[in-house]
Simulated assay, not measured.
Amino acid sequence: MTHTQELADLLETLCPIFLLVDRSGCIQQAGPTLQKLRPELPLVGLGVLDVFELIRPRTVTTLPALMSMAGAKLHLRFRDEPRTTLKGLVAPLPESGGAVINLSFGISILDAVRDYALTSADFSGTDLAIELLYLVEAKSAAMEASRSLNLRLQGAMLAAEEQAYTDTLTGLKNRRAMDHLLGHLILANSTFALMHLDLDFFKSVNDRLGHAAGDYVLQQAARIMLEETRGDDTVARVGGDEFVIIFKNLTRVETLESIAGRLIARLNEPMMFQDQPCCISASIGTALSTQFKVPKAADILHAADVALYQAKRDGRSCHRLYSTLIKAQT
């Protein structure tokens, strides 16, 4: 066994990512891991500067200059794809005039492991690269677990918030949600209509058929209100048999009269519960945000309430729009 072969065998054990080059810069031996990076390109016999592009030092452009850089640190990369970057250290061999170039991946190790499917067997036994990779993987796993936990927490918070704004019996928004929306609309200077609806004769249904029948009527009434309003309108149950509907960007009286008419007509139809008819009707009062120079939630709610009770005084099962005439009568 020649001295060169003995040196090559020793290098394969100690630093499997190496190049053994002669005085002309021709590769005599390539470490097994380095050859693994180019399995279809036998490196032995090729010029080192034909395989690699020297990034630093930029002043080195010739083989003699490269061979004379004892102990110098190099940055180089493959000339073909994938253009993996490597760090190197030149150790001259005085007897032969050649040199050993010990290489490592540096910060490109993650890309190298991914691109070439490297394992711990491809590194020196004293190389900390694999341990660092394990740390990176552990950190990634921890970050993913943290992200997943944060998403679950956010989901739980959103669910809790939604629950806090929802009427459990009907699935409609509740008074808290209504107050929140009114505050937002007024702050944004949005125009809207507020419709206050009360179910007439609801108490008689409860007294005659029980609370189960009453709950059924409320649920059916909620369904009808959702069906007769737009997707971006808000329907809220604000009391036992009282509801508020907020129509964002809708103040056209004819349209509101039409919606109220449909609601009254449908709610007048008997609802069958266990073969028993549940007969109710609806009285509705509406106020517009545009009726106030400085809209305030309390004032608009009060105005709709005034209009609602005018509808009840006028015989129930009808709709009234808040006006100066109604205001004068209260």
Rank of each mutant, 00 (worst) to 15 (best):
T2W: 00
T13S: 09
R23M: 01
Q29F: 09
P32N: 09
P32K: 13
L34P: 04
E40A: 13
L46V: 08
V48R: 01
L49S: 03
D50E: 15
F52L: 03
V60K: 00
S68C: 08
E81R: 07
T84A: 00
K87R: 09
L93C: 12
P94W: 08
L103G: 06
R114C: 03
A129I: 11
I130F: 02
Y134M: 07
Y134D: 13
A138W: 00
A145M: 12
L151D: 15
L151Y: 11
R152P: 00
A159I: 00
D167I: 03
G171R: 01
N174D: 03
N174R: 05
N174L: 06
R176C: 03
R176P: 00
D179Q: 15
H180A: 15
G183T: 10
H184F: 10
F201T: 00
N206W: 06
L209G: 02
G210E: 08
H211Y: 07
A213C: 08
T229V: 13
R230G: 15
R237H: 09
E242N: 02
F243M: 08
F247Q: 11
N249L: 05
R252E: 15
E257R: 14
G261Y: 02
M271H: 04
M272Q: 11
I284Y: 00
T286F: 07
A287G: 12
F292M: 09
K293V: 14
K293E: 15
D299N: 12
D299A: 15
A304T: 14
A307V: 15
A307D: 05
L308V: 12
Y309Q: 08
D314Y: 07
S317M: 02
H319T: 05
S323V: 11
Q329T: 15
